Simulated scan of single mutants.
Amino acid sequence: MVDEMIEEAKAALRLRARAARAALDFGERAEAAAAVARHFFHGIALQQSDVVAAYWRIRDEVDCQPILVKLMDDNQTVVLPVVLGADEPLDLRVWEQGASLYESGFGTLAPSELAPKAEPDVVLMPLLGFDKLGTRLGYGGGYYDRTLAKLKKRPKLIGLAYAAQELKRIPREAHDVPLDAVITEAGIRHFGQPA
């Protein structure tokens, strides 16, 4: 009963967060993506050995391509997620400099199935909403939850969002892993230890 109530509350929040994100025009989204990239590189400390999991934007998510391009130019190891099945964790494949990307479902692109896999030290996560406690509201498919549960180590989790996606409170369930930080066009908010 409690789980049902939480899921209903999350469904309503997803609708509100989608509407807030969809209300932004193309110019606002492009400016926000550039600002998010600046904040990321000025505020998140990366080691050269760090593996960074990012994503290829779908729909009106914050575009992390400006971050991806600079990471690749800096020879940082980057992995992109691939959906293998509805109840499976994401497959995290290394995107090597110059390698082609292929359609991998949901309108996203990813490295080929022959690409090596790697566990990330930092995960850049798309989201529908976030709150002041670092709770992430995803699409409800559980892909990131399953992926994080199977990793050998807990990576730093950084949500990428528009400031308009902040919600007052998101119910958190036991399997919901809070974000370490969220980056919007307005800056970085840390929820745990600073970067």
Rank of each mutant, 00 (worst) to 15 (best):
residue 191 F to K: 06
residue 45 A to K: 12
residue 168 K to F: 07
residue 91 D to A: 15
residue 125 M to W: 00
residue 107 G to N: 07
residue 113 E to P: 00
residue 26 F to Y: 08
residue 108 T to Y: 00
residue 90 L to H: 00
residue 149 A to Y: 07
residue 151 L to V: 08
residue 33 A to F: 15
residue 179 L to C: 12
residue 56 W to A: 12
residue 91 D to N: 05
residue 27 G to W: 03
residue 50 D to W: 13
residue 193 Q to L: 15
residue 189 R to S: 11
residue 192 G to L: 14
residue 176 D to C: 09
residue 168 K to H: 13
residue 189 R to Y: 05
residue 107 G to R: 02
residue 12 A to G: 04
residue 19 A to Y: 01
residue 101 L to E: 05
residue 122 V to I: 15
residue 104 S to V: 07
residue 147 T to H: 01
residue 34 A to P: 00
residue 66 P to Q: 15
residue 126 P to I: 06
residue 2 V to S: 07
residue 92 L to G: 06
residue 123 V to M: 13
residue 132 K to G: 13
residue 145 D to V: 05
residue 165 Q to I: 08
residue 187 G to F: 13
residue 91 D to Q: 12
residue 122 V to M: 03
residue 97 Q to N: 08
residue 109 L to Y: 05
residue 62 V to P: 10
residue 180 D to V: 12
residue 142 G to F: 02
residue 166 E to L: 04
residue 31 E to D: 14
residue 102 Y to W: 13
residue 124 L to C: 01
residue 18 R to C: 10
residue 46 L to P: 09
residue 110 A to R: 02
residue 154 R to E: 08
residue 21 R to A: 02
residue 88 E to I: 01
residue 153 K to G: 03
residue 79 V to Q: 03
residue 142 G to E: 01
residue 137 L to E: 04
residue 146 R to L: 11
residue 137 L to K: 04
residue 71 L to E: 10
residue 18 R to N: 06
residue 183 I to G: 07
residue 61 E to N: 02
residue 39 H to D: 07
residue 150 K to F: 10
residue 128 L to N: 01
residue 184 T to F: 11
residue 180 D to P: 02
residue 172 R to P: 00
residue 3 D to W: 09
residue 109 L to I: 02
residue 34 A to N: 05
residue 76 Q to I: 14
residue 171 P to H: 08
residue 91 D to Y: 05
residue 42 H to W: 06
residue 145 D to I: 02
residue 112 S to N: 04
residue 184 T to R: 11
residue 76 Q to E: 03
residue 167 L to K: 02
residue 9 A to V: 06
residue 78 V to T: 04
residue 36 V to W: 06
residue 164 A to I: 07
residue 57 R to V: 14
residue 86 A to G: 07
residue 42 H to P: 00
residue 126 P to N: 03
residue 80 L to V: 06
residue 174 A to E: 11
residue 98 G to S: 09
residue 155 P to Y: 10
residue 121 D to N: 08
residue 179 L to P: 04
residue 94 V to M: 04
residue 50 D to F: 13
residue 159 G to R: 08
residue 149 A to G: 00
residue 83 V to T: 10
residue 31 E to T: 11
residue 67 I to C: 08
residue 177 V to G: 02
residue 23 A to P: 10
residue 7 E to L: 11
residue 127 L to W: 07
residue 182 V to H: 12
residue 51 V to A: 01
residue 148 L to M: 09
residue 82 V to W: 06
residue 171 P to I: 09
residue 177 V to F: 08
residue 127 L to Y: 05
residue 149 A to S: 11
residue 115 A to D: 01
residue 1 M to K: 04
residue 46 L to G: 09
residue 178 P to T: 11
residue 72 M to N: 03
residue 166 E to D: 03
residue 39 H to C: 13
residue 44 I to D: 01
residue 30 A to C: 08
residue 9 A to N: 04
residue 165 Q to S: 11
residue 148 L to N: 02
residue 136 R to K: 14
residue 53 A to L: 15
residue 96 E to G: 09
residue 100 S to L: 14
residue 43 G to T: 05
residue 63 D to W: 13
residue 160 L to S: 03
residue 156 K to L: 15
residue 25 D to N: 13
residue 59 R to I: 02
residue 45 A to M: 06
residue 41 F to L: 12
residue 57 R to F: 00
residue 162 Y to P: 10
residue 55 Y to N: 08
residue 143 Y to E: 02
